[in-house]
Design a protein around this nucleic acid. Structure first.
Lengths: 162, 162
DNA sequence: GCGAGATACTTTAAGTCTAAAGTATCTGAC
DNA sequence: GTCAGATACTTTAGACTTAAAGTATCTCGC
């Protein structure tokens, strides 16, 4: 009945899954970063920011929206937006209703530039996942959805405990 | 120009899997980083380096081994090792056989310190994965193994093409 | 109105990270 | 033996990142 429990306690499945997850993320991220640099001389965080704005559409996003969407600190967003404003890819306006807020949007150049990069970016991702068939991908998406919920719950638990 | 109200019905499974993978990695990593900082005032990369050395045992690792194991650049390892030598957690010796190499090992303090952190670190990971049962974890490990191979193959392909 | 606290963002200090160029050492073809 | 190239590592410049402290603005109870 309990013959295998000792083994169960010590096989560290969670830790192994975590390390493997990190390895995959690093491999793919490094490929994407290299491609973006070589092909368009843009960094991954800047591409990511453009991507969030592209998805958001005409109304753009506030600095806080960007910080949450990109899962980085507010201070980090400040610097990235400044850089992209300098490159003419993004424009920024102060909100009239709440003067603390500012709203960030793609310029025409930003929109065109991002849309030019998009297909090749997706091709790199597709290549990285080429070894997985549609069934694998669907199972992976499900498991990651479960993990995402679980990790969020753990995060809240940790904060409430403090 | 067409103002799109929604996405087309191509499902972009790979891209969605990639974004979800990144979200999970960010969530867990941020929890671990926060815990390490609050509890032992150590950063995640330094913990990671100690972890590699702990796994390696008495013989330690060369700078190059560390760079490969941690998937970071060689220059990055130089700085991290210097910091940890300064904290007395790690010691570094020049190889006699090949004077270009150096070998890095945990000090006694480093070994004790790391082993003190280990259980709680694993607890954070276990909590993040708490929503997945053993069967989920095994399937996730399999899918990530497949993804890892696939991503490695894509990386090689990309380099050969260039 | 007014002030206390909340919120949106910026600044700062310190650390992490990369790519590229540089240094020292080794290896192998000859 | 020697030297051209490979290898192990360091240095550098620049970008990213965070946590924490700081500034400006808003909200809400009174």
């Amino acid at each position: 009945m309990d013959r295998e429990r000792g083994h169960e306690d010590s096989d560290h499945l969670q830790l192994r899954a975590w390390l493997r997850l990190l390895t995959c993320a690093n491999l793919i991220e490094s490929r994407v970063r290299g491609g973006l640099r070589e092909t368009w001389n843009i960094t991954l965080p800047r591409f990511d920011l453009l991507s969030q704005l592209h998805r958001a559409g005409e109304d753009g996003l506030t600095m806080g929206d960007l910080s949450r969407a990109m899962m980085v600190s507010a201070g980090n967003v400040t610097g990235l937006v400044e850089a992209l404003v300098g490159e003419g890819l993004v424009r920024r306006t102060t909100s009239a209703a709440d003067r603390r807020q500012s709203r960030v949007r793609l310029t025409q150049a930003g929109k065109r530039g991002f849309e030019a990069m998009l297909p090749e970016h997706e091709r790199w991702i597709d290549e990285a996942f080429a070894g997985l068939d549609r069934n694998d991908l669907k199972r992976l998406l499900e498991l990651l959805a479960k993990l995402k919920q679980s990790a969020k719950a753990a995060e809240r638990g940790g904060k409430e405990a403090a």
